[in-house]
């Protein structure tokens, strides 16, 4: 590990001051589960490290006026243990539940997972299906943008060098909505995602799908909304038949996203099972919360 100077600010203001002062020369460490590897193998060697893990004010999950707000330094474990998310935002809960190992979930932060923009990130897929917004702060001020606008490719985001992602928020799903996330990997635990599929579905009183937000992760360079599938679902009855009817469309969509990739043969078939599992969970949630089918 090459040399660097280390700062561990206790407040957001201090951190933003440091980010402004060492703009472009400082790297941020939160959970550290990605950056420490890069520091250790010397592929990344900033002059300054700003450790934001001690900023307690950025670690929270709260629901205020119908908006779910998550502090960037909340860990996967924090979210997995949050009763509101477990009961009402199953997609995000599942995305956290299946990340890495207990050790990684205790360290890794939501902000880190979003900012890293890894092709294999779990929570960004769930967040995009929830149409989430990120809050970016710098010494100069604050700006917000939809997560869909935040990504530019693997490791690329709109985050400026003096900015910190401080919060991610989205509208709390209503009683007429259900969400789900399915992770396909090579093992049951400690596994990198091969396909991640997150869905938010809303139905009206006649059991007709009135809104669908479907996002696939680990296929393209960053999680993608699937407008063709969403369009197919809206206006149709929320039934197993409807969902079964779009399995081939999923397959075709994945094929068109990565026609030349070696994994396309596997992914275009397996996505059908991933879709079925996700929609089974949605259907089961709707029946559990007592909305008439």
């Amino acid at each position: 590990m090459k040399e660097f100077s280390f700062f561990s600010p206790g407040t957001l203001d201090e951190a933003l001051t440091l980010m402004n002062q060492y703009k472009g020369k400082a790297s941020v460490i939160a959970g550290g589960t990605d950056i420490v590897l890069e520091l250790n193998d010397r592929s990344h060697h900033p002059d300054y490290i700003v450790d934001i893990s001690k900023i307690k004010e950025l670690r929270y999950v709260k629901v205020v006026d119908g908006i779910v707000r998550i502090g960037a330094l909340s860990t996967f474990t924090d979210l997995e243990n949050d009763p509101y998310l477990r009961d009402h935002v199953k997609s995000l809960y599942s995305a956290c539940y299946y990340v890495g190992s207990p050790q990684i979930r205790n360290l890794g932060t939501i902000g880190g997972n979003v900012v890293n923009a890894s092709v294999a990130g779990d929570t960004p897929t769930a967040f995009i299906s929830l149409d989430a917004t990120v809050v970016l702060r710098s010494a100069a001020g604050k700006r917000e943008m939809k997560l869909t606008d935040f990504y530019g490719g693997p490791g690329k985001t709109e985050l400026e060098k003096d900015e910190l992602l401080t919060e991610i928020y989205f509208e709390a799903p209503t009683e007429q909505m259900a969400t789900a996330y399915t992770k396909l990997g090579k093992r049951k635990a400690l596994v990198i995602v091969v396909i991640g599929l997150a869905v938010l579905l809303e139905k009206d009183c006649n059991n007709i799908c009135s809104k669908a937000q479907v996002v696939i992760g680990a296929v393209a360079r960053y999680p993608q909304r699937l407008p063709l599938i969403e369009h197919y679902l809206v206006g149709k009855p929320v039934t197993k038949e409807t969902f079964d009817g779009c399995r081939d469309l999923f397959s075709q969509t994945v094929y068109e996203m990565i026609p030349t990739r070696a994994s396309v043969g596997y992914k275009k078939e397996s996505v059908k099972g991933v879709a079925s599992k996700t929609f089974d969970s949605i259907l089961s949630d709707f029946s559990l919360c007592g909305v008439e089918e």
Partner: peptide, 14 residues
């Protein structure tokens, strides 16, 4: 809580 000490910097345990 269990954590992997290979993915943390020394300074983070203050």
């Amino acid at each position: 809580e269990p954590v992997t000490s290979c993915t943390m910097l020394a300074g983070q345990v203050q």
